[in-house]
Amino acid sequence: MSTGNLKDIVVNVENLEVTFDEKKIIRNVSFNVRRGEIIGFFGISGAGKTTIIRVLTCQISKKNWTGNVNVTNLSPGSKKNYAKILSNIGYVPQLEELNLYYDLTPLKNVEVFASCYGMKKKEAKNIAMELFSILDIPEDTWNKPLKKMSGGEKKRVSMAIGLIHKPDILFLDEPTTGVDAAKRYDVLSYLKKLNRRLGTTMFLITHDMEAALIVDRAAILRDGKLLEFDSNSNLITSLPNNGLVARFSIENLNEEKINIIKRFPNAPNIKTIRVGNETLEVLMDDFEKNLSKLIQFMMENGLKINAMSRDVAAFRRYFQLRIQEEEEKERLIRIQQDAIEEVEI
């Protein structure tokens, strides 16, 4: 990823707010994306990932949103810009059936979509063949009906169609959903390969934390708010002690025992994540200094440690901690509000 200047910014979003039926779906979101970056939009369902992408892809009318938004230097707020923006972007939906005519062959599908961009059949075919080769779509399937292809092959044809007109930006909605575990990494590596070869800016909307492996910057959303928008490494190093974690296997682990650990006096900023039935990960300041003291504290409080290891936190852990932190903040705000209401009564 190159850092680049303002000219390299392909998506600029400032103070975006989206409202439907007086309900605010997106709250004051701002970010920008540079040419060639892979951006991951992470969040649980209802976080607002898809809504933001729909604003960027001209699917939401301007009457439903406010703020300054530019996609390839054009505002999706003006209907006059729709056709130009749509010719500069590609989209790969979550479900292939929404992107492909299963009865037609991959090449015929390409032809249908390419024609929407005013491309001639021969030009489309040449680009398709190049993309199919990059994506390892077997040549003997190019002229067979799509319905005869495997799920993974359909997914790759879908990606090729998203790129057929050589867009500046490609939006991918849950690209790894519905793909089995082993093939998920294949899909991600194909996306990285396409990004490197074509220089296309990519937006990945996903629940799949493994997608963080290929993104240059990750956006974490919750309840329509953009909590974080930074590189994977920056996010992890912002954790206590640069994301170093101690993983404990504790006998009969329960909430009571986790609360005991949270009361460890030497590290007030201690963070815990339960990652298994009897497994807990702990992050804290002055990790090296405090680790032995933590173990001693746990034993003194009757916690039986069966095993222990240390590691650096993955993006998945950062995401969990960040969401937990936000939930905790909201819980405290609610308690405060309830207390104020009680006093007023």
Partner: peptide, 12 residues
């Protein structure tokens, strides 16, 4: 025709 919404994400 399921791909109509996708076609509408082109200039069509």
């Amino acid at each position: 025709e399921k791909p109509i919404p996708r076609l509408l994400l082109t200039p069509a």
